[in-house]
Design a protein around this nucleic acid. Structure first.
Length: 280
DNA sequence: ATCATTTGACCTAG
DNA sequence: CTAGGTCAAATGAT
């Protein structure tokens, strides 16, 4: 980086907007890889090679997730510095209110933690396959959003209770994706990082759908939970039945490979989704 | 009977 | 005050 007069500019850390655009690009890459994965894996035979490919896809996605995490950390600290420079009073107020909330959550009433999320600890991506992200989610809410045609669905990690995993995501169908000539697109926003045991999904490979649920209370939870947002809009009853069946098939395939294989093994199951991808 | 989803109420950040 | 995020009772599915 050279200044126009020939002198070098002082080395400065990347700006917040740099981080943002970097995260955006990585998220776009994630979205593309996810879509590619949903196309490639169904086409493979369900053998060892398929598992290997699935694992490689997951590794790629993990890499970008880690990169985003790193960027988020820098981003947040930079943003704090920016706040201090721009409006110190505001910052003080924000910190103190955060402290209040923290204390309240820790001590007084654990049942009332309706804390609105900070907007900057999230990563969003657009995809026609909102639930094929290799994680297991449980829906805990749905909300109609102002000026949006489609409701937003709220999911949290299946392992939240067992392992205190704070990861959540929201899924919302995009307004302009209702036409029949292009695939239905969803905006997926991830909040927080998964702190749950990776064995729940990634590399144990064999029959961990039983063993990875210590309390066994969630043994029925599955990726099928995330399919439900597809009912958010007025799908026909027949379609619903079809999707429920498909979800069930996915669930059963969790038995041997709950993470990646759930998404890809029997892809006759989700012709709707494959169609969407192919049209995409 | 158990567990996941639905849905209206409740809560809070802005 | 409003919009959006979460809770939890009711409901549905297995």
């Amino acid at each position: 980086m050279k200044h126009h007069n020939g002198r070098y500019l002082p080395q400065s850390s990347p700006s917040v907007s740099d981080h943002r655009s970097a995260m955006k690009e990585i998220a776009r890459g994630q979205s593309l890889v996810t879509q590619l994965r949903a196309i490639v894996l169904p086409a493979l035979q369900a053998d060892q090679r398929c598992e290997l490919v699935a694992q490689m896809f997951q590794n790629i996605l993990d890499c970008s997730s880690k990169a985003i995490t790193e960027l988020q950390l820098h981003h947040q600290s930079d943003a704090r510095v920016d706040d201090a420079l721009v409006d110190d009073k505001k910052r003080v107020r924000k910190i103190s209110s955060d402290d209040c909330v923290k204390e309240e959550g820790a001590t007084s009433n654990p049942n009332h933690q309706h804390k609105r999320r900070r907007s900057d600890d999230s990563v969003s991506l657009e995809t026609p396959v909102p639930h094929y992200d290799g994680r297991q989610w449980r829906k805990y809410g749905q909300k109609h959003i102002n000026k949006a045609k489609h409701p937003r669905s709220y999911y949290r990690c299946t392992y939240r209770q067992e392992q205190d995993c704070k990861a959540t995501k929201t899924v919302q169908q995009q307004d302009d994706s209702t036409g029949t000539d292009h695939p239905v697109m969803y905006t997926v926003v991830y909040h927080g990082q998964h702190t749950c045991n990776e064995n729940n999904g990634i590399d144990s490979g064999t029959d961990d759908s039983e063993t990875n649920t210590p309390s066994s209370s969630d043994s029925r939870s599955s990726i099928s939970t995330t399919c439900t947002d597809l009912y958010d809009h007025q799908t026909s009853l027949n379609d619903n039945k079809l999707l429920e069946k498909s979800a069930d098939m996915i669930t059963k395939n969790c038995m041997y490979e709950p993470f990646d294989m759930t998404a890809f093994a029997p892809l006759d199951l989700d012709s709707w989704e494959l169609d969407a991808l192919l049209r995409f």
